[in-house]
Design a protein around this nucleic acid. Sequence first.
RNA 1: GAGGGCAUAGCUCAGUCGGUAGAGCAGCUGCCUUUUAAGCAGCGGGUCGUGGGUUCGAGUCCCGCUGCCCUCACCA
Length: 498
Amino acid sequence: MAAHLPEERLRKLEALRAAGVDPYPKRFPARGETRNWIGPLRDGYVEGAEVPAVVCGRVTAYRDHGKSIFFDVKDETGKVQVYVQQDKVGEAVFTRIRNTFDLNDHVGVRGTFAKTRRGELTVFATGVEMLAKSMTPPPDKWHGLQDKELRSRRRHVDLNANDEVMAQFRMRSRIVAEMRKFLDQRGFVEVETPVLHHIAGGAAARPFLTHHNALDLDLSLRIALELHLKRLLVGGMEKVFEIGRVFRNEGIDTRHNPEFTMIELYWAYADYEDVMDLWEQLLVHLAMTARGTTKLTWGGTAIDLSAPFRRVRYEDLLKQHAGVDLDDEPAVRAKCAAVGIDTKDKSHHKAANDLFEMFCERTLIQPTFVIDYPRGITTLAKWKDFGGDRAERFELFVNGLEIANAFSEMNDPIAQRQILEKQVLEKDPENPAAVDEDFLEALEYGMPPAGGVGMGVDRLVMMLSDSDSIRDVVLFPLLRPHAGGADAPQDGAPVEKV
RNA sequence: GAGGGCAUAGCUCAGUCGGUAGAGCAGCUGCCUUUUAAGCAGCGGGUCGUGGGUUCGAGUCCCGCUGCCCUCACCA
Protein backbone atom coordinates (compact mmCIF):
# COMPACT_ATOMS: atom_id res chain seq x y z
CA MET A 1 0.00 0.00 0.00
CA ALA A 2 2.55 2.59 1.04
CA ALA A 3 5.49 0.47 0.01
CA HIS A 4 6.41 2.81 -2.82
CA LEU A 5 6.77 5.84 -0.54
CA PRO A 6 10.16 7.05 0.67
CA GLU A 7 11.04 5.53 4.03
CA GLU A 8 12.30 8.79 5.52
CA ARG A 9 9.01 10.55 4.81
CA LEU A 10 6.95 7.74 6.30
CA ARG A 11 9.22 7.83 9.33
CA LYS A 12 8.69 11.57 9.72
CA LEU A 13 4.96 11.15 9.34
CA GLU A 14 4.95 8.65 12.20
CA ALA A 15 7.22 10.90 14.27
CA LEU A 16 4.69 13.72 13.95
CA ARG A 17 1.85 11.48 14.99
CA ALA A 18 3.87 10.09 17.89
CA ALA A 19 4.37 13.66 19.08
CA GLY A 20 0.62 14.20 18.95
CA VAL A 21 0.78 16.39 15.84
CA ASP A 22 -1.76 15.82 13.09
CA PRO A 23 0.24 15.88 9.81
CA TYR A 24 -2.97 16.74 7.94
CA PRO A 25 -4.83 19.30 10.07
CA LYS A 26 -8.02 20.97 8.86
CA ARG A 27 -7.45 24.63 8.26
CA PHE A 28 -4.96 27.43 8.56
CA PRO A 29 -4.99 29.95 10.00
CA ALA A 30 -7.62 29.59 12.67
CA ARG A 31 -11.11 30.83 11.78
CA GLY A 32 -11.21 34.58 12.37
CA GLU A 33 -7.47 34.97 11.89
CA THR A 34 -6.31 36.65 8.69
CA ARG A 35 -3.98 35.00 6.26
CA ASN A 36 -1.53 37.09 4.28
CA TRP A 37 -1.06 36.11 0.65
CA ILE A 38 2.62 36.29 -0.06
CA GLY A 39 2.56 38.39 -3.22
CA PRO A 40 0.45 41.20 -1.74
CA LEU A 41 2.42 40.99 1.52
CA ARG A 42 5.66 41.61 -0.36
CA ASP A 43 4.11 44.33 -2.52
CA GLY A 44 2.89 46.11 0.60
CA TYR A 45 6.26 46.15 2.31
CA VAL A 46 7.24 49.54 3.74
CA GLU A 47 10.98 50.08 4.09
CA GLY A 48 12.11 49.54 7.66
CA ALA A 49 8.73 48.26 8.86
CA GLU A 50 8.22 45.20 11.01
CA VAL A 51 4.66 43.93 10.78
CA PRO A 52 2.88 40.76 11.93
CA ALA A 53 2.33 38.21 9.18
CA VAL A 54 0.56 34.89 8.76
CA VAL A 55 1.45 32.93 5.64
CA CYS A 56 1.05 29.40 4.40
CA GLY A 57 2.21 27.44 1.40
CA ARG A 58 4.58 24.84 0.13
CA VAL A 59 8.20 24.55 1.30
CA THR A 60 10.36 24.99 -1.79
CA ALA A 61 13.83 25.38 -0.29
CA TYR A 62 15.39 24.57 3.05
CA ARG A 63 18.67 25.81 4.54
CA ASP A 64 19.63 24.43 7.95
CA HIS A 65 22.13 26.52 9.94
CA GLY A 66 22.22 24.57 13.17
CA LYS A 67 20.39 26.68 15.69
CA SER A 68 18.49 28.45 12.95
CA ILE A 69 16.81 27.43 9.71
CA PHE A 70 15.82 29.30 6.60
CA PHE A 71 13.16 27.92 4.33
CA ASP A 72 11.14 29.32 1.46
CA VAL A 73 7.36 29.15 1.40
CA LYS A 74 5.46 29.53 -1.84
CA ASP A 75 1.76 30.19 -2.27
CA GLU A 76 -0.09 30.95 -5.49
CA THR A 77 0.84 34.63 -5.34
CA GLY A 78 4.53 34.42 -4.55
CA LYS A 79 7.38 33.13 -2.50
CA VAL A 80 8.87 34.36 0.77
CA GLN A 81 11.74 33.34 2.99
CA VAL A 82 11.04 32.22 6.54
CA TYR A 83 13.65 32.49 9.26
CA VAL A 84 13.28 30.21 12.25
CA GLN A 85 15.52 30.71 15.27
CA GLN A 86 15.58 28.14 18.03
CA ASP A 87 15.32 30.71 20.83
CA LYS A 88 12.31 32.35 19.14
CA VAL A 89 10.15 29.27 18.61
CA GLY A 90 11.40 27.12 21.47
CA GLU A 91 13.48 23.98 21.31
CA ALA A 92 10.55 21.57 20.91
CA VAL A 93 9.10 23.25 17.85
CA PHE A 94 12.55 23.88 16.43
CA THR A 95 13.55 20.23 16.74
CA ARG A 96 10.27 19.11 15.27
CA ILE A 97 10.80 21.31 12.21
CA ARG A 98 14.30 20.02 11.88
CA ASN A 99 13.39 16.36 12.17
CA THR A 100 10.08 16.15 10.35
CA PHE A 101 9.83 18.92 7.75
CA ASP A 102 10.72 18.29 4.13
CA LEU A 103 10.70 20.06 0.82
CA ASN A 104 7.19 20.02 -0.65
CA ASP A 105 5.36 19.98 2.69
CA HIS A 106 2.61 22.54 3.19
CA VAL A 107 3.27 24.63 6.26
CA GLY A 108 1.75 27.56 8.11
CA VAL A 109 3.89 30.32 9.56
CA ARG A 110 3.19 33.14 12.00
CA GLY A 111 5.79 35.81 12.64
CA THR A 112 7.11 39.24 11.85
CA PHE A 113 7.55 40.42 8.29
CA ALA A 114 10.76 42.40 7.83
CA LYS A 115 14.08 42.43 6.02
CA THR A 116 17.23 40.52 6.88
CA ARG A 117 20.61 42.23 7.00
CA ARG A 118 21.16 41.15 3.42
CA GLY A 119 17.90 42.83 2.44
CA GLU A 120 15.77 39.75 1.85
CA LEU A 121 12.08 40.06 2.72
CA THR A 122 11.56 37.47 5.42
CA VAL A 123 9.00 36.21 7.90
CA PHE A 124 10.82 35.94 11.23
CA ALA A 125 8.87 33.02 12.62
CA THR A 126 7.32 32.85 16.03
CA GLY A 127 5.39 29.71 15.15
CA VAL A 128 5.49 27.11 12.40
CA GLU A 129 3.10 24.23 11.86
CA MET A 130 2.74 21.33 9.49
CA LEU A 131 -0.34 21.68 7.28
CA ALA A 132 0.13 18.71 4.97
CA LYS A 133 3.02 16.31 4.83
CA SER A 134 4.22 15.52 1.33
CA MET A 135 5.33 11.99 0.50
CA THR A 136 7.22 12.96 -2.64
CA PRO A 137 10.29 15.12 -3.12
CA PRO A 138 10.19 17.93 -5.66
CA PRO A 139 12.20 17.69 -8.88
CA ASP A 140 15.65 19.24 -9.16
CA LYS A 141 15.50 22.66 -7.53
CA TRP A 142 17.62 24.30 -10.16
CA HIS A 143 16.53 22.60 -13.40
CA GLY A 144 12.94 21.88 -12.39
CA LEU A 145 11.00 19.27 -14.32
CA GLN A 146 12.23 19.13 -17.92
CA ASP A 147 11.02 15.79 -19.26
CA LYS A 148 8.14 16.69 -21.57
CA GLU A 149 6.29 13.47 -20.98
CA LEU A 150 6.47 13.79 -17.20
CA ARG A 151 5.41 17.43 -17.42
CA SER A 152 2.19 16.43 -19.17
CA ARG A 153 1.58 13.31 -17.13
CA ARG A 154 2.31 14.95 -13.79
CA ARG A 155 1.05 18.44 -14.45
CA HIS A 156 0.73 19.07 -10.72
CA VAL A 157 4.49 18.76 -10.46
CA ASP A 158 5.03 20.86 -13.58
CA LEU A 159 2.86 23.66 -12.22
CA ASN A 160 4.75 23.71 -8.96
CA ALA A 161 8.20 23.44 -10.45
CA ASN A 162 7.84 25.75 -13.44
CA ASP A 163 6.41 29.20 -12.73
CA GLU A 164 5.96 29.98 -16.41
CA VAL A 165 3.60 27.00 -16.72
CA MET A 166 1.42 28.38 -13.95
CA ALA A 167 1.48 31.80 -15.63
CA GLN A 168 0.52 30.17 -18.92
CA PHE A 169 -2.59 28.51 -17.55
CA ARG A 170 -3.60 31.59 -15.62
CA MET A 171 -3.42 33.45 -18.89
CA ARG A 172 -5.67 30.88 -20.50
CA SER A 173 -8.18 31.38 -17.73
CA ARG A 174 -7.99 35.14 -18.21
CA ILE A 175 -8.53 34.87 -21.95
CA VAL A 176 -11.68 32.81 -21.51
CA ALA A 177 -12.96 35.14 -18.81
CA GLU A 178 -12.39 38.16 -21.05
CA MET A 179 -14.14 36.41 -23.90
CA ARG A 180 -17.20 35.96 -21.73
CA LYS A 181 -17.04 39.54 -20.51
CA PHE A 182 -16.71 40.94 -24.02
CA LEU A 183 -19.69 38.99 -25.29
CA ASP A 184 -21.79 39.60 -22.19
CA GLN A 185 -21.27 43.34 -22.63
CA ARG A 186 -22.66 43.04 -26.14
CA GLY A 187 -25.76 41.22 -25.04
CA PHE A 188 -24.80 37.65 -25.91
CA VAL A 189 -26.22 34.93 -23.70
CA GLU A 190 -24.10 31.95 -22.71
CA VAL A 191 -25.78 28.55 -22.81
CA GLU A 192 -24.93 24.90 -22.32
CA THR A 193 -26.09 22.31 -24.83
CA PRO A 194 -25.78 18.53 -24.73
CA VAL A 195 -22.45 16.76 -25.04
CA LEU A 196 -24.18 13.42 -25.71
CA HIS A 197 -25.60 13.47 -29.22
CA HIS A 198 -27.70 10.99 -31.13
CA ILE A 199 -25.99 12.09 -34.31
CA ALA A 200 -22.74 14.00 -34.05
CA GLY A 201 -23.27 16.80 -36.54
CA GLY A 202 -22.08 20.29 -37.30
CA ALA A 203 -18.68 19.15 -38.52
CA ALA A 204 -17.17 16.26 -40.45
CA ALA A 205 -15.01 14.59 -37.82
CA ARG A 206 -15.19 11.03 -36.56
CA PRO A 207 -16.96 10.98 -33.21
CA PHE A 208 -16.32 9.04 -30.03
CA LEU A 209 -19.07 6.49 -29.47
CA THR A 210 -20.67 5.67 -26.16
CA HIS A 211 -23.79 4.02 -24.83
CA HIS A 212 -26.57 4.82 -22.41
CA ASN A 213 -27.36 1.66 -20.49
CA ALA A 214 -30.81 2.42 -19.09
CA LEU A 215 -32.12 3.57 -22.47
CA ASP A 216 -30.01 1.01 -24.33
CA LEU A 217 -29.06 3.84 -26.65
CA ASP A 218 -25.93 4.39 -28.72
CA LEU A 219 -24.70 7.94 -28.45
CA SER A 220 -21.81 10.05 -29.73
CA LEU A 221 -19.83 12.74 -27.99
CA ARG A 222 -20.34 16.01 -29.79
CA ILE A 223 -17.92 17.14 -32.49
CA ALA A 224 -19.33 20.67 -32.69
CA LEU A 225 -21.79 22.94 -30.91
CA GLU A 226 -23.49 24.23 -34.01
CA LEU A 227 -26.79 22.46 -34.46
CA HIS A 228 -28.18 22.89 -30.95
CA LEU A 229 -27.19 26.55 -30.89
CA LYS A 230 -29.04 27.15 -34.14
CA ARG A 231 -32.11 25.52 -32.63
CA LEU A 232 -31.85 28.17 -29.92
CA LEU A 233 -31.96 30.83 -32.64
CA VAL A 234 -35.18 29.23 -33.81
CA GLY A 235 -36.36 29.35 -30.20
CA GLY A 236 -35.91 33.11 -30.09
CA MET A 237 -32.48 33.53 -28.49
CA GLU A 238 -31.04 36.19 -30.78
CA LYS A 239 -27.49 36.46 -29.46
CA VAL A 240 -26.18 33.22 -28.07
CA PHE A 241 -22.87 31.49 -27.51
CA GLU A 242 -21.34 28.46 -25.87
CA ILE A 243 -17.82 27.72 -24.73
CA GLY A 244 -17.44 24.00 -24.42
CA ARG A 245 -15.51 20.86 -24.96
CA VAL A 246 -15.86 18.96 -28.20
CA PHE A 247 -14.41 15.56 -29.03
CA ARG A 248 -12.95 14.33 -32.30
CA ASN A 249 -11.73 10.79 -32.70
CA GLU A 250 -8.74 11.59 -34.85
CA GLY A 251 -5.00 11.86 -34.85
CA ILE A 252 -3.01 13.68 -32.20
CA ASP A 253 -0.28 16.16 -33.01
CA THR A 254 0.97 19.56 -31.97
CA ARG A 255 -2.27 21.21 -33.13
CA HIS A 256 -4.81 18.50 -32.24
CA ASN A 257 -5.98 17.04 -28.95
CA PRO A 258 -8.91 14.59 -29.06
CA GLU A 259 -10.88 16.82 -26.71
CA PHE A 260 -10.59 20.55 -27.14
CA THR A 261 -12.48 23.70 -26.36
CA MET A 262 -14.54 25.60 -28.89
CA ILE A 263 -16.48 28.77 -28.72
CA GLU A 264 -19.39 29.07 -31.10
CA LEU A 265 -21.57 32.14 -31.40
CA TYR A 266 -24.78 32.84 -33.31
CA TRP A 267 -26.28 36.25 -33.95
CA ALA A 268 -29.77 36.59 -35.38
CA TYR A 269 -30.52 39.12 -38.13
CA ALA A 270 -26.79 39.54 -38.75
CA ASP A 271 -24.52 38.12 -41.45
CA TYR A 272 -20.92 37.01 -41.76
CA GLU A 273 -19.68 40.56 -42.21
CA ASP A 274 -21.13 41.58 -38.87
CA VAL A 275 -19.49 38.53 -37.34
CA MET A 276 -16.19 39.41 -38.98
CA ASP A 277 -16.27 42.88 -37.42
CA LEU A 278 -17.23 41.45 -34.04
CA TRP A 279 -14.50 38.80 -34.12
CA GLU A 280 -11.86 41.31 -35.11
CA GLN A 281 -12.78 43.42 -32.11
CA LEU A 282 -12.84 40.39 -29.85
CA LEU A 283 -9.36 39.27 -30.88
CA VAL A 284 -7.94 42.76 -30.40
CA HIS A 285 -9.60 42.88 -26.98
CA LEU A 286 -8.17 39.50 -26.00
CA ALA A 287 -4.67 40.41 -27.16
CA MET A 288 -4.80 43.66 -25.23
CA THR A 289 -6.11 42.10 -22.02
CA ALA A 290 -3.94 38.99 -22.14
CA ARG A 291 -0.73 40.55 -23.44
CA GLY A 292 -1.25 44.29 -23.28
CA THR A 293 -0.42 44.66 -26.97
CA THR A 294 -1.52 43.48 -30.39
CA LYS A 295 2.09 42.98 -31.44
CA LEU A 296 2.82 39.34 -30.74
CA THR A 297 5.43 36.77 -31.55
CA TRP A 298 4.36 33.26 -32.42
CA GLY A 299 6.95 30.62 -33.21
CA GLY A 300 9.52 33.27 -34.01
CA THR A 301 7.20 35.13 -36.35
CA ALA A 302 6.01 38.65 -35.58
CA ILE A 303 2.21 38.78 -35.64
CA ASP A 304 0.35 42.07 -35.65
CA LEU A 305 -3.19 41.58 -34.40
CA SER A 306 -4.22 45.20 -34.79
CA ALA A 307 -7.45 45.82 -36.70
CA PRO A 308 -8.47 45.83 -39.43
CA PHE A 309 -7.31 42.39 -40.50
CA ARG A 310 -6.66 41.74 -44.16
CA ARG A 311 -9.74 40.45 -46.00
CA VAL A 312 -9.19 38.52 -49.20
CA ARG A 313 -11.37 36.33 -51.39
CA TYR A 314 -10.66 32.63 -51.49
CA GLU A 315 -10.57 32.55 -55.26
CA ASP A 316 -8.12 35.45 -55.41
CA LEU A 317 -5.69 33.59 -53.16
CA LEU A 318 -6.09 30.46 -55.25
CA LYS A 319 -5.38 32.41 -58.41
CA GLN A 320 -2.40 34.15 -56.90
CA HIS A 321 -0.65 31.22 -55.21
CA ALA A 322 -1.84 28.14 -57.13
CA GLY A 323 -2.30 29.92 -60.43
CA VAL A 324 -5.70 28.48 -61.19
CA ASP A 325 -9.19 29.82 -61.64
CA LEU A 326 -11.50 28.34 -59.02
CA ASP A 327 -14.33 27.99 -61.53
CA ASP A 328 -12.19 26.26 -64.16
CA GLU A 329 -12.60 22.64 -63.08
CA PRO A 330 -10.27 21.13 -65.72
CA ALA A 331 -7.57 23.60 -64.72
CA VAL A 332 -8.05 22.77 -61.04
CA ARG A 333 -7.78 19.04 -61.71
CA ALA A 334 -4.80 19.50 -64.01
CA LYS A 335 -2.98 21.50 -61.39
CA CYS A 336 -3.71 18.83 -58.78
CA ALA A 337 -2.34 16.16 -61.09
CA ALA A 338 0.75 18.27 -61.71
CA VAL A 339 1.53 18.48 -57.99
CA GLY A 340 0.66 14.90 -57.16
CA ILE A 341 -2.83 15.31 -55.67
CA ASP A 342 -5.16 12.45 -56.58
CA THR A 343 -8.58 13.90 -57.42
CA LYS A 344 -10.29 10.74 -58.63
CA ASP A 345 -12.85 10.60 -55.81
CA LYS A 346 -12.91 14.30 -55.17
CA SER A 347 -15.37 16.94 -56.18
CA HIS A 348 -14.25 19.99 -58.10
CA HIS A 349 -14.28 22.13 -54.97
CA LYS A 350 -12.62 19.55 -52.76
CA ALA A 351 -9.82 19.32 -55.31
CA ALA A 352 -9.56 23.10 -55.34
CA ASN A 353 -9.40 23.12 -51.57
CA ASP A 354 -6.48 20.67 -51.62
CA LEU A 355 -4.68 23.25 -53.73
CA PHE A 356 -5.70 25.96 -51.33
CA GLU A 357 -4.25 24.03 -48.41
CA MET A 358 -1.07 23.28 -50.29
CA PHE A 359 -0.38 26.71 -51.76
CA CYS A 360 -2.35 29.34 -49.90
CA GLU A 361 -2.66 28.57 -46.19
CA ARG A 362 1.05 28.81 -45.52
CA THR A 363 1.11 32.34 -46.93
CA LEU A 364 -1.48 33.56 -44.44
CA ILE A 365 0.86 34.69 -41.69
CA GLN A 366 -0.65 37.98 -40.55
CA PRO A 367 -4.30 37.75 -39.43
CA THR A 368 -6.35 37.25 -42.57
CA PHE A 369 -10.03 36.74 -43.17
CA VAL A 370 -10.37 34.49 -46.18
CA ILE A 371 -13.86 35.11 -47.53
CA ASP A 372 -16.35 33.56 -49.90
CA TYR A 373 -15.54 29.87 -49.86
CA PRO A 374 -16.53 27.47 -52.62
CA ARG A 375 -19.99 26.08 -52.10
CA GLY A 376 -18.85 22.48 -52.52
CA ILE A 377 -16.88 22.38 -49.27
CA THR A 378 -19.40 24.32 -47.24
CA THR A 379 -22.60 22.68 -46.06
CA LEU A 380 -24.06 24.91 -43.38
CA ALA A 381 -23.66 28.36 -44.92
CA LYS A 382 -25.81 30.51 -47.10
CA TRP A 383 -25.16 31.00 -50.77
CA LYS A 384 -23.49 34.23 -51.72
CA ASP A 385 -26.06 34.33 -54.52
CA PHE A 386 -28.89 31.83 -54.31
CA GLY A 387 -27.93 28.57 -55.98
CA GLY A 388 -24.50 29.93 -56.89
CA ASP A 389 -21.03 28.56 -56.41
CA ARG A 390 -19.86 30.65 -53.44
CA ALA A 391 -20.81 30.51 -49.80
CA GLU A 392 -20.98 33.42 -47.37
CA ARG A 393 -18.20 32.02 -45.27
CA PHE A 394 -14.93 33.24 -43.84
CA GLU A 395 -12.07 31.56 -42.10
CA LEU A 396 -9.53 33.46 -40.05
CA PHE A 397 -5.92 32.38 -40.50
CA VAL A 398 -2.92 33.42 -38.44
CA ASN A 399 0.57 32.05 -38.99
CA GLY A 400 -0.81 29.58 -41.52
CA LEU A 401 -3.20 28.05 -38.99
CA GLU A 402 -6.97 28.12 -39.08
CA ILE A 403 -8.27 29.96 -36.04
CA ALA A 404 -11.95 30.58 -36.76
CA ASN A 405 -14.62 29.53 -39.24
CA ALA A 406 -17.82 31.50 -39.80
CA PHE A 407 -20.87 31.73 -42.03
CA SER A 408 -23.97 33.54 -42.86
CA GLU A 409 -25.95 30.58 -41.62
CA MET A 410 -28.06 28.53 -43.99
CA ASN A 411 -31.67 28.90 -42.85
CA ASP A 412 -33.51 27.60 -45.92
CA PRO A 413 -34.84 24.28 -44.58
CA ILE A 414 -35.39 22.70 -47.97
CA ALA A 415 -31.98 23.63 -49.33
CA GLN A 416 -30.31 22.61 -46.08
CA ARG A 417 -31.98 19.19 -46.18
CA GLN A 418 -30.87 18.63 -49.76
CA ILE A 419 -27.28 19.55 -48.95
CA LEU A 420 -27.09 17.34 -45.86
CA GLU A 421 -28.74 14.37 -47.53
CA LYS A 422 -26.41 14.66 -50.49
CA GLN A 423 -23.46 14.89 -48.12
CA VAL A 424 -24.25 11.70 -46.20
CA LEU A 425 -24.86 9.87 -49.48
CA GLU A 426 -21.51 10.97 -50.88
CA LYS A 427 -19.69 10.00 -47.75
CA ASP A 428 -20.94 6.41 -47.73
CA PRO A 429 -23.37 5.54 -50.54
CA GLU A 430 -23.90 1.99 -49.20
CA ASN A 431 -24.70 3.07 -45.67
CA PRO A 432 -25.73 6.70 -45.64
CA ALA A 433 -25.67 8.14 -42.13
CA ALA A 434 -28.86 9.69 -40.86
CA VAL A 435 -29.24 13.43 -41.06
CA ASP A 436 -30.15 15.32 -37.90
CA GLU A 437 -33.93 15.47 -38.22
CA ASP A 438 -34.29 17.49 -35.02
CA PHE A 439 -32.13 20.20 -36.53
CA LEU A 440 -33.94 20.16 -39.86
CA GLU A 441 -37.33 20.21 -38.18
CA ALA A 442 -36.21 23.31 -36.27
CA LEU A 443 -35.17 25.03 -39.51
CA GLU A 444 -38.59 24.25 -40.90
CA TYR A 445 -40.10 26.06 -37.95
CA GLY A 446 -38.15 29.11 -39.13
CA MET A 447 -34.64 30.22 -38.22
CA PRO A 448 -33.94 33.92 -38.51
CA PRO A 449 -31.15 35.00 -40.80
CA ALA A 450 -28.01 34.82 -38.69
CA GLY A 451 -24.27 35.05 -38.66
CA GLY A 452 -22.32 32.44 -36.74
CA VAL A 453 -18.71 31.66 -35.90
CA GLY A 454 -16.71 28.90 -34.31
CA MET A 455 -13.19 29.18 -32.95
CA GLY A 456 -10.76 26.79 -31.35
CA VAL A 457 -9.97 28.26 -27.96
CA ASP A 458 -6.85 26.15 -27.55
CA ARG A 459 -5.34 27.45 -30.77
CA LEU A 460 -6.26 30.99 -29.79
CA VAL A 461 -4.43 30.53 -26.51
CA MET A 462 -1.47 29.05 -28.40
CA MET A 463 -1.34 32.20 -30.48
CA LEU A 464 -1.67 34.59 -27.56
CA SER A 465 0.89 32.73 -25.44
CA ASP A 466 3.42 31.92 -28.18
CA SER A 467 3.03 28.16 -27.73
CA ASP A 468 3.98 25.78 -30.51
CA SER A 469 2.09 22.77 -29.15
CA ILE A 470 -1.50 22.36 -28.04
CA ARG A 471 -0.14 20.25 -25.20
CA ASP A 472 1.30 23.41 -23.71
CA VAL A 473 -2.14 25.02 -23.41
CA VAL A 474 -4.14 21.96 -22.30
CA LEU A 475 -3.64 21.08 -18.64
CA PHE A 476 -3.98 17.35 -19.09
CA PRO A 477 -3.51 16.39 -22.75
CA LEU A 478 -4.45 12.84 -23.68
CA LEU A 479 -1.55 10.40 -23.33
CA ARG A 480 -1.36 6.68 -23.48
CA PRO A 481 -1.34 5.02 -20.08
CA HIS A 482 2.15 4.02 -19.11
CA ALA A 483 3.07 0.77 -17.39
CA GLY A 484 3.03 1.03 -13.63
CA GLY A 485 1.48 4.47 -13.73
CA ALA A 486 -1.65 5.49 -11.89
CA ASP A 487 -3.34 5.78 -15.26
CA ALA A 488 -2.34 2.30 -16.44
CA PRO A 489 -5.17 -0.18 -16.97
CA GLN A 490 -5.68 -2.22 -13.83
CA ASP A 491 -6.10 -5.98 -14.01
CA GLY A 492 -9.64 -6.95 -13.21
CA ALA A 493 -10.83 -3.39 -12.97
CA PRO A 494 -14.25 -2.89 -14.50
CA VAL A 495 -13.96 -1.24 -17.89
CA GLU A 496 -16.71 1.04 -19.08
CA LYS A 497 -17.16 0.79 -22.79
CA VAL A 498 -16.78 4.28 -24.18
C1' G B 1 -0.76 4.81 -40.40
C1' A B 2 4.79 5.86 -42.34
C1' G B 3 9.70 7.62 -41.37
C1' G B 4 13.28 9.57 -37.87
C1' G B 5 14.91 10.53 -32.75
C1' C B 6 14.93 9.69 -27.44
C1' A B 7 14.52 6.30 -22.77
C1' U B 8 20.84 5.62 -17.27
C1' A B 9 19.43 7.24 -9.35
C1' G B 10 13.37 10.85 -6.99
C1' C B 11 15.11 15.25 -10.58
C1' U B 12 18.90 17.32 -14.26
C1' C B 13 22.52 14.87 -16.87
C1' A B 14 27.69 12.28 -18.03
C1' G B 15 29.11 7.34 -19.40
C1' U B 16 35.29 7.02 -24.47
C1' C B 17 36.93 1.61 -28.67
C1' G B 18 32.07 -3.63 -25.70
C1' G B 19 35.58 -4.65 -19.84
C1' U B 20 31.38 -5.17 -14.53
C1' A B 21 27.74 2.35 -12.92
C1' G B 22 29.21 8.29 -12.34
C1' A B 23 28.31 13.78 -11.04
C1' G B 24 25.20 17.76 -9.25
C1' C B 25 20.62 18.51 -6.84
C1' A B 26 17.25 15.84 -3.51
C1' G B 27 17.88 12.13 0.89
C1' C B 28 20.48 10.34 5.61
C1' U B 29 24.37 11.39 9.85
C1' G B 30 27.35 15.24 12.17
C1' C B 31 28.88 20.68 12.65
C1' C B 32 27.13 25.62 11.96
C1' U B 33 21.78 31.58 14.88
C1' U B 34 21.17 36.52 8.74
C1' U B 35 21.51 32.16 4.68
C1' U B 36 19.38 32.32 -0.21
C1' A B 37 21.68 27.03 -6.11
C1' A B 38 24.06 28.38 1.94
C1' G B 39 28.74 25.93 3.53
C1' C B 40 31.99 21.88 5.53
C1' A B 41 32.85 16.40 6.64
C1' G B 42 30.86 11.63 5.92
C1' C B 43 27.01 7.89 4.14
C1' G B 44 23.23 5.48 1.42
C1' G B 45 20.70 5.27 -3.27
C1' G B 46 20.40 1.68 -10.03
C1' U B 47 15.99 -4.66 -13.06
C1' C B 48 20.68 1.35 -17.35
C1' G B 49 12.17 1.40 -20.32
C1' U B 50 11.12 -4.01 -21.50
C1' G B 51 11.94 -9.03 -23.85
C1' G B 52 15.24 -11.68 -26.82
C1' G B 53 20.04 -12.16 -29.52
C1' U B 54 25.52 -11.66 -30.59
C1' U B 55 29.85 -12.00 -27.30
C1' C B 56 34.40 -14.75 -22.59
C1' G B 57 31.92 -10.10 -21.28
C1' A B 58 26.40 -5.51 -23.28
C1' G B 59 24.24 0.87 -20.44
C1' U B 60 27.17 0.52 -25.12
C1' C B 61 26.18 -3.76 -30.92
C1' C B 62 21.58 -6.35 -33.42
C1' C B 63 16.08 -7.60 -33.40
C1' G B 64 11.07 -7.33 -31.22
C1' C B 65 7.87 -4.63 -27.82
C1' U B 66 6.24 -0.22 -24.80
C1' G B 67 6.14 5.06 -23.89
C1' C B 68 7.33 10.00 -25.38
C1' C B 69 9.12 13.75 -29.03
C1' C B 70 9.59 15.49 -34.26
C1' U B 71 8.12 15.30 -39.50
C1' C B 72 4.51 13.52 -42.79
C1' A B 73 -0.40 11.32 -43.55
C1' C B 74 -5.49 11.68 -41.57
C1' C B 75 -8.50 15.96 -40.00
C1' A B 76 -15.62 20.81 -43.24
